[in-house]
Design a protein around this nucleic acid. Structure first.
Length: 262
DNA sequence: ACATTGACCTGAGAGC
DNA sequence: TGCTCTCAGGTCAATG
Protein backbone atom coordinates (compact mmCIF):
# COMPACT_ATOMS: atom_id res chain seq x y z
CA UNK A 1 0.00 0.00 0.00
CA UNK A 2 2.10 2.75 1.34
CA UNK A 3 3.23 5.11 -1.38
CA UNK A 4 2.58 8.85 -1.27
CA UNK A 5 -1.21 8.67 -1.74
CA UNK A 6 -1.62 5.90 0.83
CA UNK A 7 0.50 7.72 3.39
CA UNK A 8 -1.50 10.89 2.77
CA UNK A 9 -4.68 8.93 3.48
CA UNK A 10 -3.11 7.62 6.71
CA UNK A 11 -2.16 11.18 7.63
CA UNK A 12 -5.73 12.36 7.28
CA UNK A 13 -6.86 9.33 9.27
CA UNK A 14 -4.62 10.31 12.18
CA UNK A 15 -5.85 13.90 11.90
CA UNK A 16 -9.47 12.94 12.37
CA UNK A 17 -8.92 10.24 15.00
CA UNK A 18 -5.85 10.52 17.19
CA UNK A 19 -4.92 14.19 17.70
CA UNK A 20 -5.15 16.05 21.02
CA UNK A 21 -5.45 13.00 23.23
CA UNK A 22 -3.05 12.35 26.07
CA UNK A 23 -0.86 9.32 25.55
CA UNK A 24 -0.78 7.11 28.63
CA UNK A 25 1.68 4.58 27.33
CA UNK A 26 3.26 3.04 24.25
CA UNK A 27 3.67 -0.69 23.92
CA UNK A 28 6.34 -1.85 21.48
CA UNK A 29 5.86 -5.47 20.46
CA UNK A 30 8.66 -5.50 17.88
CA UNK A 31 11.60 -3.40 19.10
CA UNK A 32 13.49 -4.15 15.88
CA UNK A 33 11.24 -1.75 13.97
CA UNK A 34 12.49 1.18 16.04
CA UNK A 35 15.23 3.20 14.39
CA UNK A 36 17.57 5.42 16.42
CA UNK A 37 15.21 5.27 19.39
CA UNK A 38 14.79 2.73 22.18
CA UNK A 39 11.40 1.62 23.52
CA UNK A 40 12.24 3.46 26.71
CA UNK A 41 13.03 6.70 24.88
CA UNK A 42 9.83 6.38 22.87
CA UNK A 43 7.90 5.97 26.09
CA UNK A 44 9.44 9.02 27.73
CA UNK A 45 9.02 11.17 24.62
CA UNK A 46 5.31 10.44 24.40
CA UNK A 47 3.97 9.63 27.86
CA UNK A 48 1.70 12.40 29.12
CA UNK A 49 1.90 14.23 25.81
CA UNK A 50 -0.28 14.46 22.71
CA UNK A 51 -0.07 14.33 18.94
CA UNK A 52 -0.69 17.94 17.91
CA UNK A 53 -0.52 17.79 14.12
CA UNK A 54 0.76 15.72 11.24
CA UNK A 55 2.86 16.23 8.16
CA UNK A 56 4.23 14.09 5.37
CA UNK A 57 7.28 13.97 3.15
CA UNK A 58 7.27 11.31 0.45
CA UNK A 59 6.35 8.04 2.12
CA UNK A 60 7.16 9.26 5.65
CA UNK A 61 4.46 10.40 8.06
CA UNK A 62 5.34 12.82 10.88
CA UNK A 63 3.38 13.45 14.07
CA UNK A 64 4.29 16.49 16.16
CA UNK A 65 4.40 15.95 19.89
CA UNK A 66 3.02 18.51 22.36
CA UNK A 67 6.32 18.76 24.22
CA UNK A 68 8.70 18.95 21.29
CA UNK A 69 9.93 17.01 18.30
CA UNK A 70 8.24 14.59 15.97
CA UNK A 71 7.71 10.87 15.62
CA UNK A 72 8.40 9.53 12.14
CA UNK A 73 6.51 6.58 10.69
CA UNK A 74 7.45 4.55 7.65
CA UNK A 75 5.03 1.88 6.47
CA UNK A 76 7.25 -0.44 4.45
CA UNK A 77 5.19 -2.51 2.05
CA UNK A 78 2.38 -3.56 4.35
CA UNK A 79 1.87 -0.93 7.03
CA UNK A 80 -1.20 1.01 8.20
CA UNK A 81 -2.77 2.64 11.27
CA UNK A 82 -5.87 1.46 13.09
CA UNK A 83 -7.65 3.55 15.73
CA UNK A 84 -10.08 1.74 17.99
CA UNK A 85 -11.54 1.44 21.48
CA UNK A 86 -12.17 -2.23 22.17
CA UNK A 87 -8.90 -4.09 22.83
CA UNK A 88 -10.35 -7.12 21.08
CA UNK A 89 -10.03 -5.10 17.89
CA UNK A 90 -6.23 -4.98 18.11
CA UNK A 91 -5.13 -6.00 14.61
CA UNK A 92 -2.85 -8.92 13.97
CA UNK A 93 0.76 -7.77 13.37
CA UNK A 94 0.39 -4.71 15.59
CA UNK A 95 4.03 -3.73 16.19
CA UNK A 96 3.41 -0.70 18.40
CA UNK A 97 0.35 0.48 20.27
CA UNK A 98 -0.32 4.01 21.54
CA UNK A 99 -2.76 3.98 24.45
CA UNK A 100 -4.70 7.21 25.09
CA UNK A 101 -6.24 8.29 28.37
CA UNK A 102 -9.71 8.33 26.76
CA UNK A 103 -9.54 4.54 26.44
CA UNK A 104 -8.80 4.55 22.72
CA UNK A 105 -5.75 3.09 21.01
CA UNK A 106 -3.75 3.74 17.85
CA UNK A 107 -2.12 0.61 16.43
CA UNK A 108 0.86 0.77 14.08
CA UNK A 109 0.47 -2.39 12.06
CA UNK A 110 3.05 -4.09 9.82
CA UNK A 111 2.69 -7.57 8.47
CA UNK A 112 6.22 -7.70 7.14
CA UNK A 113 8.55 -5.84 9.46
CA UNK A 114 9.85 -3.50 6.78
CA UNK A 115 8.49 -0.28 8.28
CA UNK A 116 9.83 1.77 11.18
CA UNK A 117 9.24 4.36 13.86
CA UNK A 118 11.89 6.96 14.56
CA UNK A 119 12.06 10.37 16.16
CA UNK A 120 13.46 13.72 15.12
CA UNK A 121 13.56 17.26 16.45
CA UNK A 122 13.02 18.87 13.06
CA UNK A 123 11.42 17.42 9.95
CA UNK A 124 13.95 19.13 7.73
CA UNK A 125 16.81 17.47 9.55
CA UNK A 126 15.29 14.05 9.07
CA UNK A 127 14.56 14.67 5.39
CA UNK A 128 18.11 15.86 4.84
CA UNK A 129 19.64 12.90 6.68
CA UNK A 130 17.60 10.48 4.60
CA UNK A 131 18.69 12.30 1.46
CA UNK A 132 15.11 12.60 0.25
CA UNK A 133 14.27 14.71 -2.77
CA UNK A 134 11.39 17.16 -2.86
CA UNK A 135 7.99 15.66 -2.18
CA UNK A 136 6.29 14.80 -5.46
CA UNK A 137 3.38 17.13 -4.60
CA UNK A 138 5.50 19.95 -3.17
CA UNK A 139 4.60 23.31 -4.74
CA UNK A 140 8.32 24.02 -4.92
CA UNK A 141 8.79 21.14 -7.32
CA UNK A 142 8.68 23.16 -10.55
CA UNK A 143 8.77 21.55 -13.99
CA UNK A 144 12.39 22.64 -14.39
CA UNK A 145 13.46 20.99 -11.13
CA UNK A 146 11.57 17.85 -12.10
CA UNK A 147 13.29 17.79 -15.48
CA UNK A 148 16.70 18.20 -13.90
CA UNK A 149 16.08 15.46 -11.32
CA UNK A 150 15.06 12.93 -13.95
CA UNK A 151 17.16 13.71 -16.96
CA UNK A 152 20.40 13.13 -15.08
CA UNK A 153 19.45 9.49 -14.53
CA UNK A 154 20.89 6.80 -16.76
CA UNK A 155 18.44 4.25 -15.41
CA UNK A 156 15.00 3.48 -16.79
CA UNK A 157 12.43 6.19 -16.27
CA UNK A 158 10.51 3.85 -13.95
CA UNK A 159 13.52 3.43 -11.65
CA UNK A 160 14.22 7.17 -11.75
CA UNK A 161 10.65 7.97 -10.69
CA UNK A 162 10.95 5.54 -7.78
CA UNK A 163 14.31 6.96 -6.63
CA UNK A 164 13.46 8.73 -3.38
CA UNK A 165 16.57 10.91 -3.64
CA UNK A 166 15.30 12.43 -6.89
CA UNK A 167 11.64 12.85 -5.98
CA UNK A 168 10.07 11.46 -2.83
CA UNK A 169 6.83 9.50 -2.66
CA UNK A 170 6.48 7.39 -5.79
CA UNK A 171 6.80 3.59 -5.58
CA UNK A 172 6.18 0.60 -7.78
CA UNK A 173 2.40 0.87 -8.20
CA UNK A 174 2.13 4.58 -8.86
CA UNK A 175 5.16 4.73 -11.13
CA UNK A 176 3.28 2.28 -13.37
CA UNK A 177 0.15 4.43 -13.28
CA UNK A 178 2.02 7.67 -13.97
CA UNK A 179 3.86 6.15 -16.93
CA UNK A 180 0.62 4.73 -18.26
CA UNK A 181 -1.11 8.12 -18.08
CA UNK A 182 1.92 9.78 -19.72
CA UNK A 183 1.96 7.02 -22.39
CA UNK A 184 5.63 6.29 -21.81
CA UNK A 185 7.36 2.93 -21.94
CA UNK A 186 8.69 2.20 -18.43
CA UNK A 187 11.96 0.81 -19.84
CA UNK A 188 12.89 4.06 -21.62
CA UNK A 189 16.17 5.53 -20.35
CA UNK A 190 15.34 8.63 -18.33
CA UNK A 191 18.04 10.72 -20.00
CA UNK A 192 16.62 9.95 -23.44
CA UNK A 193 13.23 11.52 -22.84
CA UNK A 194 12.39 14.60 -24.87
CA UNK A 195 11.42 17.84 -23.14
CA UNK A 196 7.91 17.22 -24.31
CA UNK A 197 7.90 13.75 -22.71
CA UNK A 198 9.11 15.15 -19.40
CA UNK A 199 6.47 17.90 -19.41
CA UNK A 200 3.77 15.30 -20.03
CA UNK A 201 5.22 13.10 -17.30
CA UNK A 202 5.19 15.96 -14.82
CA UNK A 203 1.53 16.69 -15.49
CA UNK A 204 0.67 12.99 -15.28
CA UNK A 205 2.49 12.66 -11.95
CA UNK A 206 0.56 15.49 -10.31
CA UNK A 207 -2.71 14.36 -11.78
CA UNK A 208 -2.30 10.72 -10.78
CA UNK A 209 -1.19 11.43 -7.21
CA UNK A 210 -3.96 13.97 -6.58
CA UNK A 211 -6.59 11.73 -8.12
CA UNK A 212 -5.37 8.79 -6.04
CA UNK A 213 -5.64 10.82 -2.84
CA UNK A 214 -9.15 11.96 -3.81
CA UNK A 215 -9.97 8.28 -4.37
CA UNK A 216 -8.61 7.45 -0.90
CA UNK A 217 -5.92 5.38 -2.63
CA UNK A 218 -8.59 2.80 -3.44
CA UNK A 219 -8.28 1.45 -7.01
CA UNK A 220 -12.04 0.76 -7.07
CA UNK A 221 -12.70 4.49 -6.73
CA UNK A 222 -10.28 5.59 -9.41
CA UNK A 223 -11.27 6.66 -12.92
CA UNK A 224 -12.09 3.87 -15.34
CA UNK A 225 -9.23 5.03 -17.57
CA UNK A 226 -6.68 4.21 -14.89
CA UNK A 227 -4.36 1.23 -15.10
CA UNK A 228 -4.56 0.38 -11.39
CA UNK A 229 -7.90 -1.47 -11.40
CA UNK A 230 -6.53 -3.59 -14.27
CA UNK A 231 -3.05 -4.09 -12.88
CA UNK A 232 -3.14 -7.88 -12.68
CA UNK A 233 -2.26 -10.96 -14.69
CA UNK A 234 -4.56 -11.11 -17.70
CA UNK A 235 -5.72 -7.52 -17.19
CA UNK A 236 -6.94 -5.52 -20.19
CA UNK A 237 -5.89 -1.99 -21.04
CA UNK A 238 -8.79 0.37 -20.25
CA UNK A 239 -7.90 2.49 -23.30
CA UNK A 240 -7.16 0.08 -26.18
CA UNK A 241 -8.43 -3.12 -24.53
CA UNK A 242 -5.21 -4.93 -25.40
CA UNK A 243 -3.48 -7.27 -22.98
CA UNK A 244 -1.52 -5.68 -20.10
CA UNK A 245 2.05 -7.00 -20.05
CA UNK A 246 4.41 -7.45 -17.14
CA UNK A 247 8.17 -7.35 -16.97
CA UNK A 248 10.92 -6.90 -14.39
CA UNK A 249 12.62 -3.52 -14.12
CA UNK A 250 15.34 -3.18 -11.47
CA UNK A 251 13.93 -6.20 -9.70
CA UNK A 252 10.38 -4.82 -9.46
CA UNK A 253 7.39 -6.00 -11.46
CA UNK A 254 6.19 -3.44 -13.98
CA UNK A 255 2.75 -3.55 -15.60
CA UNK A 256 2.19 -1.63 -18.82
CA UNK A 257 0.28 -1.56 -22.10
CA UNK A 258 2.73 -2.24 -24.94
CA UNK A 259 0.30 -0.71 -27.42
CA UNK A 260 -0.35 2.60 -25.63
CA UNK A 261 3.09 3.07 -24.09
CA UNK A 262 5.81 3.20 -26.71
C1' DA B 1 30.09 6.93 -9.56
C1' DC B 2 26.32 4.85 -10.89
C1' DA B 3 22.79 1.24 -11.53
C1' DT B 4 21.23 -3.27 -10.40
C1' DT B 5 20.82 -7.32 -7.37
C1' DG B 6 20.14 -9.74 -3.03
C1' DA B 7 18.82 -9.67 1.75
C1' DC B 8 15.70 -8.44 5.10
C1' DC B 9 10.59 -10.20 7.12
C1' DT B 10 6.03 -12.54 7.05
C1' DG B 11 2.52 -14.20 5.01
C1' DA B 12 -1.10 -15.17 0.97
C1' DG B 13 -2.27 -17.62 -2.89
C1' DA B 14 -1.31 -20.98 -6.61
C1' DG B 15 -0.17 -25.52 -8.03
C1' DC B 16 0.50 -30.31 -6.99
C1' DT C 1 -5.33 -31.21 3.65
C1' DG C 2 -0.68 -30.22 3.45
C1' DC C 3 3.38 -29.23 1.20
C1' DT C 4 6.25 -26.30 -1.83
C1' DC C 5 6.99 -22.42 -4.63
C1' DT C 6 6.37 -17.66 -6.08
C1' DC C 7 5.13 -13.23 -5.21
C1' DA C 8 4.13 -8.88 -2.54
C1' DG C 9 2.83 -1.25 -3.13
C1' DG C 10 10.02 -0.72 0.69
C1' DT C 11 14.84 0.20 1.57
C1' DC C 12 19.66 -0.76 2.41
C1' DA C 13 24.19 -3.03 1.67
C1' DA C 14 26.79 -5.50 -1.46
C1' DT C 15 28.01 -6.24 -6.20
C1' DG C 16 29.12 -5.26 -11.11
Amino acid sequence: MPELPDVEVFRKYVDRTALHQTIESVEVFAPDILGEVTPKQLQSKTKGHQFMSTDRHGKYLFTRLSNDGWLVFHFGMTGYFHYFKDSKQTPKHTRALFNFDNGHHLAFVLQRKLGSISATQEMDTFVKEQGLGLDALDDNLHPEAFKKALKEAKSSIKSALMDQERIAGIGNIYSDEILFQARLDPKTRANQLSNEDVDRLFEAMKEVLETAIDSEADPEKMPETYLLPHREKGGKCPVCHGEIETTKISGRSAYFCPNCQS
